[in-house]
Design a binder for these strands. Structure first.
Lengths: 231, 231
DNA sequence: CCCTGCCAGCTGCTATAGCAGTTGTCCATG
DNA sequence: CATGGACAACTGCTATAGCAGCTGGCAGGG
């Protein structure tokens, strides 16, 4: 009710996450990195012992992974890592494009001027990073752009779904690593056009441009095949 | 490896679900039906005692509900029911429309002839149900139509996401109950046109029609407002 | 040799107990 | 009266133990 002028920042994202959260990320990374091969069985007990924790957090992580579609649990029989082939990755990419499109549409309606200015700042950073050919900074800026836009929707379901899909995105890069070689200017132009649509408060245009951007990006990275399936 | 001609059917979906699953549905229904008001706190222990079970299944249910966006948990502080206003329902409706559209596109590419025939059978049932003005049968057929189509994609993530969104759908009907009064013929025509696109193996067309159908349906039910935001 | 039924060893699932933070109240203190 | 600190009562979170169901192999009867 009080505390309006205390000159301290809140603790910046403590790294002491819950064991369930850590187990979730650990297992997720193991799956997308190929350490946990598709079809391999994951026992709650043995995995708990391997991680040095109890079985409950592991179970919790497995349930979340199941909802993400990364593992499949047969009741009273076992949990196995799901097969994630190229075609499945392509499907998830199209789902991601659709969801990011909706996020852009919602953001165009609700986004505040401050957040809009923040995005403009990021696009400016992208411009200089592109000129300097700084791929690492560009990747981070790209992530922030999408994260801020999604957060601006204020929709938990949307944010969590896209967060789950982002993990698969990492898996796709294993097949076509070394991305963002020469299409950096194209990505910059796309982000700028999306920002313009957001500024114009045009949901349909923002959605179309965002969707096209994601699909084009996935196509460039080799996740999606042909330039067919036009938006 | 054997057993090719045993004249018995497998046990039809035993109703003995896990406690976690039952707690999840119970809490979810409580939220969408208004028994658990937005902002009210849900304690793992007290809820477990109220349901006559242990705290673990309740916790598991709460985590799933959190991923669905129905509750929000502050670590070490408590879990409260999230606010779900009309604008949030509208957002979720648009997300659902986008996801069902992607499902239709994927189905148009992968769907087998048998499943296609099954859908055709359902549409035929819809035709007669519409003629008989049997709203109850029509609702069930509609649910089966979408469920079969989504299942035909074989995408776990898509299916589970849409399943979660379906729960919100029930919440929307509380505000505008007594739906499907006169738009039955329109829904029938839309389903038939979607089926035609699926038969033609036209992903883009199937997606556009499905999306339009869902948006139109939500608009008729009052979940979405204006006929704006044109696909 | 083949088939059938039992049984040890897994599995996910649930219950109980206790840990570690957070919060609100109440009392001692300035 | 106002203020700060400690304590009690929560909370979510984790660990341990044990339940019920499934699987595979092994022995015993045909």
């Amino acid at each position: 009710m009080s505390a309006g002028a205390i000159p301290v920042e809140p603790l910046a994202e403590e790294e002491t996450l819950s064991l369930g959260e850590r187990a979730y990320r650990r297992l997720r990374d193991g799956i997308v990195q190929g350490t946990l091969r598709p079809g391999s069985r994951i026992s709650e007990r043995s995995m708990a012992h391997a991680l040095g924790i109890s079985a409950q957090p592991v179970r919790e992580a497995l349930r979340r992974l199941e909802q993400d579609g990364m593992v499949v649990t047969l009741p009273r029989r076992g949990t196995v890592v799901a097969e994630i082939g190229p075609e499945r990755l392509a499907e998830l990419g199209r789902i991601r494009a659709a969801l990011e499109g909706v996020a852009a549409a919602l953001a165009a309606e609700r986004m505040s001027g401050e957040v809009l200015a923040e995005l403009a700042q990021i696009v400016r950073g992208m411009r200089s990073a592109t000129a300097a050919a700084d791929t690492e900074a560009l990747a981070e800026l790209n992530e922030r752009f999408h994260a801020i836009l999604q957060g601006a929707t204020g929709n938990l379901f949307l944010v969590k779904s896209l967060e789950a899909l982002r993990a698969y995105d990492d898996l796709g890069r294993l097949r076509a690593l070394g991305s963002t070689p020469k299409d950096m200017p194209k990505a910059l132009r796309e982000h700028a056009s999306i920002l313009a649509a957001l500024k114009a408060r045009d949901p349909a245009l923002a959605e179309a441009r965002m969707r096209h951007h994601v699909l084009r990006s996935l196509t460039t990275n080799g996740v999606l095949a042909a330039p067919r399936q036009g938006r």
